[in-house]
Simulated scan of single mutants.
Amino acid sequence: MHIRRSEKMLSWAVLTAVVLIVLIPLSWAVLTSLKSEANVMAYPPTFFPTEPSLSAYKAVFRNQTFGSDLFNSVFYAVGAVALAVLLSAPAGYAASRFEFRGKRAVMLLILSTSMIPGVALLVPTYFLLDALGLLNNAAVIIVVQAARLVPQTVWFMQNFVDAVPRELDEATQVDGANHWQTFTRVILPLVRPGIAASAVIGMITTWNDYITVAAFAPEVAHRTLQVALVNQVFDSIGITWSYVMAYAVVSSLPIVAIFVLAQRWFISGLTAGAVKG
């Protein structure tokens, strides 16, 4: 009994430490965004603002390119995730239900492509797109980002489909359904939590992707919130930290909202392997 209580206390201590490690920097960013620039640069530094103000947030929303940056972030993220799921769901079903020679090798090959650092492909991809005149092309950005999501999503979808009993497939096929009908009418509704989990992970990955857009869409009209945020740090007139922190908070809110709204489905998707037949 004493050992269990000690283990429980240790677990709570570790969890509390992890939460503090995460929350303290976030709290510092939010509180900094509420400070005046003089308050930010004051020495010794203060954790709480002396006179809280929303002026930095007003400046963010008044930025001329904020609306287009936000639209591009949403457009790229939704487009890439939709394309990745559209390609990965049938592939995951095929990987789960069909047997063919070299299946394991093919799946390992698909997974291995996700292990290649994006930076390693940056230069050759840039020269290829430049030669084809496809820089600053929204469709290309979506395809490139989706290509990075597909390998991992295929593996996720295979595991989600594996959790669905094969007897359901057999029952529908006895009734005359083909594989496509079985997939669309039976499998897809059952793996929706898994699709939601994959979509949330893909949205977070794509939303935070800086290097792809910065390299392949250098024009201001095609940049995203993440690119605009980094540009604030390299501004020639200097860094306004309260503005930068406000921009960071605002650019994080959409993805936080998506995670909160899809939290139930996300957790269900991650535990899809526990589904019983």
Rank of each mutant, 00 (worst) to 15 (best):
S73Y: 00
Y76A: 01
A77M: 11
A77I: 00
V78A: 11
G79M: 08
G79E: 15
A80P: 10
V81A: 07
A82Q: 11
L83S: 09
L83Q: 09
A84V: 14
L87V: 14
L87E: 05
L87A: 15
S88W: 01
A89P: 02
P90Q: 04
A91S: 12
G92S: 10
G92R: 01
A94T: 00
A94N: 02
A95V: 06
R97P: 05
F98E: 02
R101A: 13
G102V: 05
R104I: 08
R104C: 01
A105E: 09
A105L: 12
V106W: 02
M107K: 09
M107N: 13
M107R: 04
M107D: 01
L108Y: 14
L109M: 10
I110Q: 13
L111F: 14
L111N: 08
S112N: 07
T113F: 07
T113H: 13
T113E: 02
S114Y: 15
I116T: 09
I116K: 07
I116P: 03
A120E: 11
A120K: 05
L121R: 12
L122N: 03
V123T: 13
V123M: 13
V123L: 15
P124H: 06
P124G: 07
T125R: 12
T125D: 05
Y126A: 07
Y126R: 01
F127W: 08
F127L: 15
L128K: 03
L128S: 09
L128W: 14
D130L: 09
L134Y: 13
L135W: 06
N136H: 03
N136I: 13
A138R: 06
I141R: 11
I141P: 01
I142C: 06
I142A: 10
I142N: 05
I142D: 08
I142M: 11
V143L: 11
V143Y: 00
V144E: 08
V144A: 11
Q145E: 14
A146N: 08
R148H: 08
V150K: 04
P151C: 13
P151Y: 13
Q152L: 15
Q152W: 15
T153N: 12
T153D: 14
V154L: 11
V154R: 09
W155A: 05
W155Q: 02
M157Y: 12
Q158D: 04
Q158Y: 12
N159G: 15
V161L: 05
V161M: 11
V161R: 04
A163C: 02
V164E: 14
V164M: 10
V164S: 11
V164Q: 09
P165H: 00
E167T: 00
